[in-house]
Design a binder for these strands. Structure first.
Lengths: 163, 163
DNA sequence: GATCTTTTTAGAATTATTCTTGATATTGTT
DNA sequence: AACAATATCAAGAATAATTCTAAAAAGATC
């Protein structure tokens, strides 16, 4: 897991230590953009670095988040997910399949707040049906035989959270 | 904790059971709008209903969220908070004092997504300095003597999360 | 009021995250 | 290269948030 030079350079002379572990964690997030949880990052990292510990994963993620290289993605009562943050974007959570998609959301940052409020970060989270799932529903290809979207949606509510 | 008639009516004939516990939980959220965690709701509810259990709090919150009466507020790696959802609004988290403010954020819902994506819910979360804290900093009234915002902000990073 | 279904309770279980401590690595300095 | 100072890592314990389970209670229906 070798980090592209462009990223390594961001650390040069900044007092920030780019350790093997941090490089590994950041590299994994860059490589596979599926918004893994800390535990998922841990499992992936162990393949290259069998000795790495989960606490280190959390430490590395904290550092990367502090440095602005990684974003945390928060979903309702689910473990925090992580995302290499290379350009401005938002997240779309599919209520059918549980996938998280990066989406371009051009918000201009001009939030109309009460005086005195200073915005440092803005996060937009969308929920609904992703393209794949909405196509399935509109075509009526319903493998479960439960009827349309609303029935399946109701079903989702009571089943366990997506792993 | 008696629920205003306007809310009780929403349940009439809907098959939804407005139990004492659900009424209590919803009433608490309506009454004190400080975005409590499930545990905080539990502690408050016990004052009126000493026998209520934490699992019931979670059950009630789940039900209220399903019915669209309550919103979940997700912050980085912190317990989920709850908010009686009476009008469209967003949340502002103050990185200095940890307070969560409701803010009017007029987003028009026209998100520019890839074809096929259907948005059911949109959530905007802002982070930064609330009015009170930004006033403190700009006035230089710094009770800790740590200097300006950046120093205090750095400090916040390493201290324990707000209870 | 008998019965069926849903909800509540209490506590155990699970999972996510943080903390602690000693070992290891890195940086800066002779 | 050796040294001290500092930061990071690893392992596992500890804490905290959330979910699950099973039996009792409550609400709805007939």
């Amino acid at each position: 897991m070798k980090l592209p030079l462009e990223h390594v350079q961001r650390f040069a002379g900044s007092g920030i230590r780019l350790t093997k572990q941090r490089e590994e964690v950041f590299g994994l997030l860059l490589q596979k953009r599926d918004h893994p949880t800390a535990t998922e990052v841990f499992l992936r990292a162990k393949k290259h670095m069998p000795s790495i510990s989960l606490a280190t994963i959390y430490n590395c993620l904290d550092a990367l988040v502090d440095w602005g290289l990684v974003k945390q993605v928060n979903l309702d009562r689910a473990p925090t997910r992580y995302c290499a943050n290379l350009q401005e974007h938002s997240h779309f959570y599919c209520e059918s399949c549980g996938a998280i998609s990066d989406v371009d959301v051009p918000f201009d940052g001009r939030w109309d707040l009460p005086p005195g409020f200073i915005v440092a970060h803005a996060e937009v989270s969308l929920k609904g049906q992703c393209a794949k799932c909405s196509a399935q529903h509109s075509l009526g290809t319903d493998p479960i035989g439960m009827g349309g979207f609303s029935a399946q949606h109701a079903k989702m509510k009571t089943q366990k959270r997506h792993s």
